[in-house]
Nucleic acid binder design. Sequence first.
DNA 1: CTACTGAGTTCGGATTCCGAACTCAGTATT
DNA 2: AATACTGAGTTCGGAATCCGAACTCAGTAG
Lengths: 155, 155
Amino acid sequence: MRVYLRYVMERHQQPGAAIEETLRVVGDRWSILLVRAGLRGIRRFDDFCDDLGIARPVLTERLRRLVKFGIFERVKYQDKPVRYEYRLTEAGLALSPALVALVRWSEEYSQEKSSDVILVHGPCGTELEQAFWCRSCQSTFGPHAVKGVSSSSGS
Amino acid sequence: MRVYLRYVMERHQQPGAAIEETLRVVGDRWSILLVRAGLRGIRRFDDFCDDLGIARPVLTERLRRLVKFGIFERVKYQDKPVRYEYRLTEAGLALSPALVALVRWSEEYSQEKSSDVILVHGPCGTELEQAFWCRSCQSTFGPHAVKGVSSSSGS
DNA sequence: CTACTGAGTTCGGATTCCGAACTCAGTATT
DNA sequence: AATACTGAGTTCGGAATCCGAACTCAGTAG
């Protein structure tokens, strides 16, 4: 079955608020990488630092901001010398669909291929594909069926 | 049916190559916004400029880079004074799942809500949800069913 | 008393970003 | 013919951001 999508993307109030909102939070060079590291189980400051090669002052600032936006939480894991680590919140975990989409894209369209399996279906072990799902039609279709129909630009 | 996912995310060769690959292309502050503008039908230099409020030198550099990576193509649309415009390629369109994921996230988890309908199912007009789809199981499940199981971090 | 860990801060220098003004080809206006 | 306008860029100087390296600070281990 062939389904085509219409991109509508209306601006309600602010110009293109929704994506900008998200990008205002994770739209810099490091935040998404931090989330990915978090998904891989990294939690400590120095580990983030070593794993990503991010500069320490920037890491400090970025983690603080991500905590502020509720993506990571700063948890004390030790008292003696008081130490904190950073854990993904539910909101942070909820970014995974975006990460998966990013990985999938690189697999399909990036010149330098790098097969980096990120998500598997628990029960059967197959790689997952990402799809669109229409609630009322109950149908699923992949990004390949996507077709851009530009609404004729107004003024 | 309840399905849980396991985050596996192995590093094959380079540390976390896949996402970094994608982010190396669209991981700056503007590229994703440019793609979104492209999806909305914007094609001309000045229109990108006005719509996003991006500085012209940066726009120049960004478009050049995105053309180099095959996300936009520079098409001559007029001969008299020769003029070019920028159109999304198939690879560029293929970024839409990521954009949708970003929009969905802002709708669910961002404090400042902004209902900005981005994708609709052509035939029935309902908003689309994004889902994971397992090819072999033929089942679909949403991000809500996602559960993070951090692989215990090694050394 | 010295060495080490781990989460940050404090620096100076390098890069990138920005807005505003400029270029350059051709077209429309007077 | 002279002026104004369009559209895709360049060329500036100043401002914000990034970086690596060294430093702080509390507590532990030898």
